[in-house]
Write a protein that binds this DNA or RNA. Structure first.
Lengths: 260, 260
DNA sequence: GAGTGGTCTAGACCACTGC
DNA sequence: CAGTGGTCTAGACCACTCG
């Protein structure tokens, strides 16, 4: 199978010439395979925690060599979308995996060690999207949204209070009871009960003064400095599906970040 | 060339058996190649901005296939240690590259856009390492250190004030004049004048109240919330070579972080 | 046109898992 | 033992850069 035929095969443009690198539609075979696997993940063909077909099997399905499938999977494993397990198979990443937990919560105690974490849902109510939530979540003005208020405790001391904004359409069945019943992270709940998997997020950090209500919950003086963390989370295809704002008390903890 | 001989070749343990995966010294060939390239970088065989030998050349030098060298370089390119340029060659990453600049400064204006940045060195003095600086920088108590105080302006408004702690041994010739003369980032100065390349850093963020002196420099009220950013930077081999603490005014800017 | 990195294939063998 | 991912090789050809 020569190069030209290969490029044409998956792109399904039989009239395409080999040298089309300038063309915006060009991408190497392994990226096209990657996109196909991504689509399958997005469509729910394989669910989080499950194994995807073996490399050999996928190679057959897409009519490419095993090495090309491997390169596609390599990239997706590097992006934490898939997890390889030698001798077993390749699995869809899941927020139930304890390793996934600290990928999104960067807060660590100042005095080393690992602490027991507890999430306490406080409130959960319905509202209509304002201009800001609409912009961030890609909703129209007045679309239904759900807001969750939470408290996070480390070693039984309150450290974070946050509000989570979700599109009402997708998270229709969400309630305070559902949140309280669930064991594990919020993202594992979203993944299990609503079929929404967060794969990436952007955070914007600032220092702010504690308002009255947050100060009470976090047991710090009103006006004391808190770390404000605003997060937009994305699922497959970079579709935003969550916006949240947290206020972190950094008296005994800090936000740890790695600059590569 | 069979697998066993290959593994023995680079590790230089002719008595080693093929199935030594349990052994802590085991690593696949391409990682051993990676380590050798890393050593060459550390020793200064190729300097930042220069091209390293071609894949074919390195393959010959290490007596492995070009594909194996490629995999080693792939990993190092993913870690921003090397930069590949199709048709030209593979280059040692440099802090002179404008793309490297925002890898370490995560501050962006709240209201979009890119702003002109200016670094104003204020002071530079010698001191002796205390217990804290000693621990972080891996120095003995009383070892010489150099401290730099700086102000960072965005669009001519002060946004960051920071202090940089450096091992006096390595940065012996550093002075306020040298800092003021240099065009470009501090890291590009370190790389050009002192042969020290920062490749990775850890940052710890907290919210604090502005002290008098910082408040004056940043033109904010004393006691107002500031983002405290403590950074430890590492060079090849994870050796710490810089510690700094910055206070960021987040009135018009925020610290942007990507969670993958 | 020569040299470099980029892609793709095919095949061999190793290492791990679980039946 | 069979099946899966992991490593390594060898060779072909494409795409880019520069002289």
């Amino acid at each position: 199978m020569d190069y030209r035929r290969i490029n044409n095969f998956v792109v399904q443009l039989p009239s395409m010439k080999a040298s089309q690198v300038d063309s915006p539609t060009f991408s190497p075979l392994y990226r096209q395979i990657k996109r196909l696997i991504l689509q399958a993940l997005d469509s729910g063909e394989w669910r989080p925690g499950e194994a995807i077909p073996s490399e050999t099997e996928l190679a057959g399905r897409f009519s490419v060599s095993q090495g090309t499938v491997r390169k596609a999977i390599d990239e997706m494993a590097a992006e934490n979308l898939l997890i390889r397990r030698q001798g077993k198979g390749t699995y869809v990443a899941s927020h139930n995996d304890p390793r996934a937990f600290f990928r999104f919560l960067r807060l660590v105690p100042l005095a080393g060690g690992i602490e027991p974490t507890k999430s306490l849902p406080l409130e959960c109510w319905r509202a209509k999207a304002g201009p800001e939530a609409g912009r961030v979540l890609g909703l129209k003005l007045g679309d239904p949204i759900i807001i969750v208020r939470r408290l996070l405790e480390f070693s039984d001391a309150p450290v974070v209070v946050d509000e989570i904004y979700l599109p009402g359409e997708i998270f229709a069945g969400l309630s305070l009871e559902v949140l309280k019943e669930h064991q594990g992270s919020v993202y594992s709940l979203f993944e299990e009960k609503f079929g929404v998997r967060m794969i990436r997020a952007e955070e914007r950090l600032r220092a702010v003064a504690a308002d009255r209500s947050s100060a009470e919950l976090l047991k710090v003086p009103e006006g004391s400095p808190l770390l404000s963390v605003e997060r937009t989370s994305f699922t497959y295809g970079d579709r935003p599906v969550e916006w949240r704002r947290g206020l972190y008390s950094t008296a005994a903890h800090c936000y740890l970040n790695e600059l590569g």
